[in-house]
Amino acid sequence: MTNLLQTILVLVLVLNLFALGTSRILSLIRTVALQGALLGLLPLLLHGQHSLATVLTVGPTLALKGLAIPYMMVRAMRDVKIKREVEPLVGFQPSVILGALATVFALLFAGQLPLAAAHVDTLIVPTAIATVLTGFILLTTRFKALTQVVGYLVLENGIFIFGMLLVEAMPLVVELGVLLDLFVAIFVICIIVNQINRAFSSLDTRHLVSLKE
């Protein structure tokens, strides 16, 4: 069980780097979909007894993070006819290196954190930190509106991983509420992305500069 868990977390870390290195928006969305689906499986591995509540969390998480949200984003991408992120603030290879550095930092930093004894040996905390940092790198160095949305999703994934440590504190209602919020957020954002494209004939957020002092 623990081995499988560690393997999945390592895969999540690798997917972070892959997301930073790709310029095609479609493969970026697929990467995050895969990452979301892997995270959806975590509750099954973490909690020994499979109660109804676990199943009720795993099902919607898989369906939303792995299928529904990526599907909405792919449709938005098709509507706006954009395939690639061009000219990011930091190039793709430097981003990967930055991501690798963030991962190393997360591993070292998690070693310093005062963790409960049960959590010292797992990769959960470092993976959570590294994924949050990856989300921030995507959010700040990419300019296409859709890529920034993916950045937000990665950030949310990182927070989700940390939430895995706190099952008792997050009852089913709250867990589902968080998922529903995420789903509606992406839905609304995709509509706005479409409107940005129609009004500005571009998805480049550098065009969004008319409001300033």
Binding site: Y152, V209, S210
Partner: peptide, 16 residues
């Protein structure tokens, strides 16, 4: 156009 820009910033900054 201006309200789209405002909504985008509101959503993204607010959500993050």
């Amino acid at each position: 156009q201006r309200s789209i820009e405002a909504t985008w910033k509101y959503l993204l900054i607010g959500s993050v």
